[in-house]
Design a protein around this nucleic acid. Structure first.
Lengths: 209, 209
DNA sequence: GTCTATATTTCGATAGAC
DNA sequence: GTCTATCGAAATATAGAC
């Protein structure tokens, strides 16, 4: 069952078997790496195919369009960050939502350190991201992480000092991921997470926060 | 004297005259905006030309290649951040350089808030940046901001806690710029700078920092 | 300095054999 | 499920008139 961008990319679970990833999964792995390093537009299907040792046309068996590769990765990130924003849901207004920001970022760090490139993919490809949220095949019932975040960051109900702090705290997480999670994941993940969490807490503990 | 990417883009200083920007300057302005919003590869010369009300071919009078537009913007950022890293120069080793990091970021914030898109250009186009530093026409005698930064961030002489803090602090600056300096600069610049500086200081004042 | 017109290359995407 | 071959569109870049 190819060509469905929302497919969970089954790993062909052969018995007790070798962890050999499916072609579809390997496409997504390679694409994620290249999209992060060279950008979505800077990566051609030929680049991906060559890296995989197949031809361009083979990719079209698994994905109908190039966009669908990005869409599949986006949906994976969306799933990863699914419950990150729940602390915002119970809040009655933006002021209260900004109070919940430390809890949100704590959850965010936990998920993000496990899949740093999935976060960097979005940060470094705002154009492709914008195209995908407008896409009809991407009818996620709930709003996007970045959409809700951006709206809260621009809310007039929250003092500007605090909003800047919130943006800086979010940026601190991304900065940590870019430096230590992006390239080779040599840094121990739990250690990285702990230090980033701690830095974020310090940003949000201060007056304006 | 067109087609020199290192040219300072003279403003045609006509006497007491109207601050009408030169075409070359207007190309760079539009290109910067589009490169940040759509990405370098996602922006065609036709996009730039259309926005300027000229044709594609006209751009080639001012810039020999598309790369040269990016290169010119990169050199402008390089000039902007010229003296940001001087606190590192006096330090004898990486440990001492990490001690100078707060001073570096303080300088960095001052420059970056004035030209946020020049920073975002690099953050969002790592591919184009990599191509430009390998370019022979870009023989800046001194090393790049990001090169020196990345090297310090990976130095084994500095404890990992501190290095993560340093990366988070840098990310906090970028995060602040992305949220409040990137789109429309409605936020008062000195106010933004002050809050970001304060957040950075809090990240670097802590144990690991 | 800017134009029209065109050359050249690359890209996304399709058709059909195996 | 992957291949060869190819199409059409769009992009970079050039040539030469004005």
């Amino acid at each position: 069952m190819p060509r469905d961008p929302t497919a969970p990319t089954g790993e062909t679970p052969g018995a007790g078997a070798p962890p050999r990833a499916s072609t579809r999964e390997r496409i997504l792995e390679v694409a994620l790496e290249l999209f992060v390093d060279q950008g979505y537009d800077g990566t051609s299907l030929r680049d991906i195919a060559k890296r995989l040792g197949v031809t361009k046309a083979a990719l079209y068996y698994h994905f109908e369009r190039k966009d669908d590769i990005f869409l599949a990765l986006h949906l994976r990130a969306h799933e990863l960050l699914r419950d990150v924003l729940v602390p915002l849901d119970e809040a009655p207004d933006d002021r209260a939502r900004s109070d919940a920001w430390p809890a949100v970022l704590e959850r965010f760090v936990d998920r993000a350190v496990e899949h740093p490139r999935l976060v960097l993919l979005h940060v470094r490809n705002p154009g492709a991201l914008a195209a995908v949220v407008d896409d009809d095949r991407n009818r996620s019932e709930n709003e996007d992480f970045q959409q809700r975040t951006l709206r809260l960051l621009q809310s007039a109900e929250v003092p500007i000092e605090r909003r800047v702090r919130m943006a800086c705290a979010l940026g601190a997480v991304v900065g940590g991921l870019a430096a230590f999670g992006g390239a080779q994941e040599e840094t121990a993940v739990p250690e990285l997470a702990e230090h980033v969490r701690s830095a974020v807490a310090d940003v949000l503990r201060r007056p304006g926060a």
